[in-house]
Simulated scan of single mutants.
Amino acid sequence: MSLWVDKYRPKSLDKLDYHHDISKRLKALASSGDFPHLLVYGPSGAGKKTRILSSLRELYGPGVEKLKIDVKTFVTPTNRKLEFNVISSPYHLEITPSDMGNNDRIVIQDLLKEVAQTESVDFSNIVSNMKPTINKKNKFKVVIINEAELLTRDAQAALRRTMEKYSSNIRLILISNSTSNIIGPIRSRTLLIRVAAPTNIEILSVFNKIIEKEDLLKFLPKDEIEREKLLNNIANYNDRNLRKAILSFEALYMNNDIITISTPLIKLDWEEILKKLADSILIKRSVANIQHIRSILYDLLSHCIPARLILKTLVINLWEFCSINDKKYKIKSKDEVKLKIVNTGSIFDERLSLGSKDIFHLEGFTIKVMVILEKDSL
C-alpha cells in the first residue's frame, strides 16, 4: 500500500495537472535532440521533481524507473572515508551533495567526473555483428542534483568546470528552492525554469481526482460548499505545498471515520514544539530556559528535523509573535526587534553551512535573540 502522494504522482508530462506551459516547454526540449542543462527552482511541493522525472521518461522511456541505490565511497584530503548514497537508473543519477556538508566538492569532482568520462551506450539497437551502437540523439547521461542552493562555493565552482568540460556526455538538472545562492556562472550556463506553487484551485482539482479514485465522497461533507471550504482549509494550512497537502489530507482520512468542516486538521508535532519554543524564548530569558531549549533542540535533531529548517521556522515564529499586540512579550520597538532577529537568523544560517555541530549554532541563535530581547524589554 503506497501513499497517495506516490500513488497518484503523474509519470508523463501530458498527465500533469497544472503549469501546462512548462510541460509543453519541457516536452519540446526533450524531443529537440539538444537538451540543455537545467536549473529548476520554486517552493517546496510545487512539483519540480515530478516534472523532471516526467521529462526523463520523455527522453529515455520507462527505463528511467528501474532505480537502484548505490553506496559510493570517497576519500577526503585528510584520508577520511566518506560514504554517499546515489540513486541511479541506466540513464540518470540522483544525488544530494549537500548531505556531505563541506565535503560536497569532493562528491561533485569525483562522481561527476567518473560519470562524465563514461559515454552512454544504447543496447536497444544491436547490429548484426553484435556490437552495441551509440544513440546519437540522447547519448548523454543526466545527473539530478537536489538542494543545489545549499552547495558550497567550492562545489559550485567544481560544478561549473564539469559543465564546461563534459557537456557532450553529461546533462545536469539542478533542483533549488531559490536561485539567490547559485553563482552567476552556473545560472548563465543553465536554462532556468521556475515552477510556482499551485493555486488553491489547482490543489482542489488534484484533491477531487483523488476523492474520485479513492471513493471518498461518503467520508466528506455532503454539501459541496462545505466540502470545498474543507479542502481549501487544508491547502491554506499547508501553504500551497501540494505534497504536504496531500499527506495532510490522507492523514485526516486515516484518523477520522467521518470528516466534517469542524474536524481539526492534522498538525505536525515538531511545528507545534517550535511555536512553543519561540514563545518560551520571548518570555523566559534565563540560563535555566536555555538548558531546557537545548534538550528540545537535541530531540528535534535526533528525529531528523534539519537544522536549517528548525532555524527558519523559529525565525518565522518569532517574527509572527513579535507582530502580535500582546503585553506578555514586553517589547518596546517591535519593528526594530524583528529586523534584528532576521539579521541574526541570516548570520547563524551561514554558520550552519560552515560548521559541523548544528546544536551549537541553534543554541547560539536562541541566546543571541534573548540578548536582543533583553536589551529591548520594557
Rank of each mutant, 00 (worst) to 15 (best):
residue 54 S to T: 05
residue 23 S to P: 06
residue 205 S to H: 13
residue 150 L to W: 07
residue 197 A to I: 08
residue 306 P to M: 04
residue 367 I to C: 07
residue 320 E to M: 12
residue 110 D to M: 05
residue 217 L to D: 11
residue 235 A to E: 05
residue 238 N to F: 06
residue 259 I to P: 03
residue 265 L to N: 05
residue 336 E to S: 15
residue 103 N to M: 09
residue 13 L to I: 02
residue 265 L to W: 04
residue 115 V to R: 02
residue 228 E to L: 13
residue 116 A to H: 04
residue 24 K to Q: 11
residue 155 A to C: 09
residue 364 G to L: 05
residue 361 H to A: 08
residue 201 I to C: 07
residue 288 A to H: 14
residue 148 A to C: 03
residue 243 R to Q: 00
residue 324 I to N: 10
residue 96 T to F: 04
residue 323 S to V: 10
residue 31 S to H: 12
residue 76 T to Q: 07
residue 96 T to S: 13
residue 349 D to S: 15
residue 135 N to I: 03
residue 294 R to V: 08
residue 115 V to L: 03
residue 277 L to K: 03
residue 228 E to Q: 13
residue 202 E to T: 04
residue 70 D to H: 08
residue 119 E to F: 02
residue 167 S to F: 11
residue 230 L to I: 07
residue 190 T to R: 01
residue 273 I to C: 03
residue 336 E to V: 13
residue 16 L to Q: 07
residue 36 P to N: 01
residue 343 N to H: 15
residue 48 K to C: 01
residue 315 V to A: 10
residue 65 E to S: 11
residue 320 E to L: 13
residue 81 K to N: 09
residue 19 H to G: 02
residue 189 R to S: 08
residue 24 K to N: 14
residue 268 L to C: 04
residue 278 A to R: 00
residue 191 L to K: 12
residue 117 Q to N: 13
residue 2 S to D: 15
residue 67 L to R: 05
residue 373 L to M: 06
residue 242 L to I: 02
residue 344 T to D: 06
residue 258 I to F: 11
residue 75 V to R: 06
residue 248 S to V: 01
residue 248 S to R: 00
residue 211 I to F: 10
residue 32 S to I: 01
residue 100 M to F: 07
residue 325 N to T: 07
residue 243 R to M: 00
residue 40 V to R: 00
residue 233 N to E: 13
residue 346 S to D: 13
residue 212 E to S: 13
residue 13 L to C: 02
residue 6 D to Y: 14
residue 190 T to M: 07
residue 294 R to I: 10
residue 239 D to N: 15
residue 121 V to K: 04
residue 66 K to A: 07
residue 113 K to P: 00
residue 126 I to S: 05
residue 47 G to H: 02
residue 292 H to R: 15
residue 162 T to R: 00
residue 154 D to F: 10
residue 52 I to N: 03
residue 350 E to N: 13
residue 69 I to K: 08
residue 68 K to A: 07
residue 127 V to G: 12
residue 334 K to A: 15
residue 226 E to N: 15
residue 208 N to Y: 10
residue 135 N to Q: 07
residue 164 E to W: 08
residue 6 D to K: 11
residue 356 S to L: 12
residue 138 N to H: 13
residue 187 R to N: 11
residue 66 K to M: 09
residue 117 Q to V: 09
residue 97 P to T: 05
residue 177 N to Q: 11
residue 163 M to P: 01
residue 330 K to G: 05
residue 191 L to S: 12
residue 233 N to I: 08
residue 250 E to C: 01
residue 270 W to N: 10
residue 190 T to I: 05
residue 349 D to Y: 09
residue 328 K to M: 11
residue 188 S to V: 09
residue 323 S to Q: 14
residue 356 S to N: 14
residue 123 F to R: 05
residue 320 E to H: 06
residue 134 I to D: 06
residue 159 L to K: 04
residue 174 L to Q: 01
residue 148 A to Q: 02
